[in-house]
Nucleic acid binder design. Structure first.
Lengths: 134, 134
DNA sequence: ACTAAAAAGACATTATAAGTCTTTTTTATG
DNA sequence: CATAAAAAAGACTTATAATGTCTTTTTAGT
């Protein structure tokens, strides 16, 4: 359980690759896809999501492609993962206060809150810079 | 992401309810299902899994039903969750050493190992006794 | 104008989750 | 021993989400 989807795995591979390139070099999606062994059309969707929230910058047309939206030391694994997988929610009940009817009486709830917190903390402490270094 | 399935949620509800009952009281599956608001046929499957690994003991025939397989202070949330959801694996690559080809070169791998460890630790520290108390 | 690229949207396929139904086995009891 | 009550087992269905493709549109450089 608690498994990252392939989309998430691909997303990480793709953006880590981008982070490992020289800073201002514009990369073709097709090149990234080939390098990290991901279906190009699928990776395109992923990078569109990245682009919308500024994790990457995209340039269209001839000579276009992608570069990181920020320096790799200022992008965390948490951001990358949540960008494509949505928020870390070990259980539905942690999404919003008072969501589940069992609510106050439920002793399990705080456990999920704890899990969520820990996982977020770990992923948030890892930057693309760290992941891109060899 | 990292979300418990409904099956997992049902599993917890069911066995926590059982843990909240007087120790030697045999409970009907139908009663448990009604109490925790889960489709009885679905809960039956879940309790069959519990039974196989000894988390609960089942009695068939007239007067049959379920009781906990051990005292509630010796059953952890981790066991319950893994019983129905399988092992906690934030990513495929943590399942077995040398599984993924990127392996040694992959800087992300240790992060998943860390996540797995932390989540398991949290769930393992919570007993049914704690969850069943009001 | 033409070409190269990403963006957008619709679509197709596959896998997993969620749930049901029927039959079989076990066991207590009249 | 016959019956009824219960769980076990297996086959099946349906719904939802993951995974991926294809086509068209927009944008930008030459």
């Amino acid at each position: 359980m608690m498994e990252l989807t392939r989309k998430g795995e691909y997303a990480i591979r793709g953006i880590v690759f981008l982070a490992s390139r020289p800073p201002e070099q514009v990369c073709l999606l097709s090149d990234i896809a080939a390098a990290v062994d991901v279906p190009p059309t699928f990776l395109a969707k992923i990078f569109q999501q990245f682009s919308k929230i500024g994790l990457v910058k995209s340039y269209r047309g001839t000579g276009g492609g992608f570069v990181l939206g920020r320096t790799p030391d200022r992008i965390t694994l948490l951001e990358v993962v949540e960008a494509v997988e949505g928020p870390i929610t070990p259980n539905r009940c942690v999404i919003k206060e008072g969501e589940c009817p069992r609510d106050t009486s439920c002793n399990v709830h705080p456990v999920w809150v704890d899990v969520q917190q820990q996982v977020r903390d770990i992923l948030n402490s890892v930057t693309l810079q760290k992941l891109a270094q060899r």
